[in-house]
Amino acid sequence: MSDVFGVGVIGAGPVTQAIHLPTLARMPDRFRVTAIMDVDEPVAESVAGRVGARHSTSADDLIGDPGVDVVAVCSPHRFHAEQVEAACYAGKAAVLCEKPLALTVADAERVAQVSRETGVPVIVGAMHTFDPGWLGAKANWGDLQETVRVVNSSIVLPWNARYEDWATQILRRPPPGEPVADDALSRSVAVRDAVLGLAVHNLPHVRHFLPDVESVDWAESVDPYGYLVTIRGGGIIARLLGNMHGYWKPSWTLDAWAADQSLHVEFPPSYVQAGSSVATLTSDTQTRRFGGVEANGYEAEWLRVWELAAGIVPQGEDLQATVDDLIYAVRIADAAADLVRGEHARDRVR
């Protein structure tokens, strides 16, 4: 096997088109896209044609292709776990799975077990955990994890379609869906989906500072799409705010505040290949800045896939950390949904 790995991508939607194909195009000395699968054959054919790959409408066909060394699972969330497992059992060199790895904790733990049994490394596409700015700050923040008191995660973005359309030249995408119905079940489902769909990007970072959630104090679904959740644990307060909107300005930040030090991270939006985050560490004696470099988290995660596939680095704790991240996110999302259901019911009688 050469050190240029053939990549097969399952699912040819906006994430594949706007994120993974441009990223792989920047790494021709490490990857070559050999196969694209989508259930919509014209889409599969069109996207495959752009990168000179063959196309298919069958995931099994792609996974069984000997020209595919690395499988990228970019299908709808509900298929992730089974397709990652199938790629592991097929003895691929590595698997990259878009987040989330699975929709339940049990499925995620089973995938981790299959990865260990087969020896096939699995990386989850949580790009911000690979972000150079974040990693630079993490290596330099000293005792911030012990002294932090407040964590503030804020993801306020224009609708995804704005960036997807720009990045993929897919025109006339449908406008955002109807507002969430004002009933307890709809609102609780909406907050769970928003936490697992949007907050999930920052939750691995939040977990660094607040690993043991003792209480979810507040949760609500924010119109037209978003969430507000406050959690506590170990004397630390974390506020998770997410909101998608119709104006132009993106603002994706993470703050960790201790009395004598603070961390502020500004991430670029997804899809746009706009380089890394800029992370700023401030203490009473200095302000240090990390990131702001051309390479982004997507490129770093694919580099990690290459290192794993080439056997340069062992799988190590990567996957277990990812599973633990997922468990963390699912528990918060479930507790938030329960709270919204209860609070909504109380609101009705107020």
């Binding site: 507040w218 924010v222 119109d223 705010l241 909107h245 119709g246």
Partner: peptide, 27 residues
């Protein structure tokens, strides 16, 4: 409308406050 409030003590010089209204088509 819901407002979420957060505050923390700091020994650093970067004290201050911020308020945002994040509406559907403007902020």
């Amino acid at each position: 409308i819901t407002a979420t409030l957060l505050g923390a003590r700091t020994e650093l010089g970067s004290r201050g406050s911020r308020v945002r209204w994040l509406g559907p088509t403007e902020a």
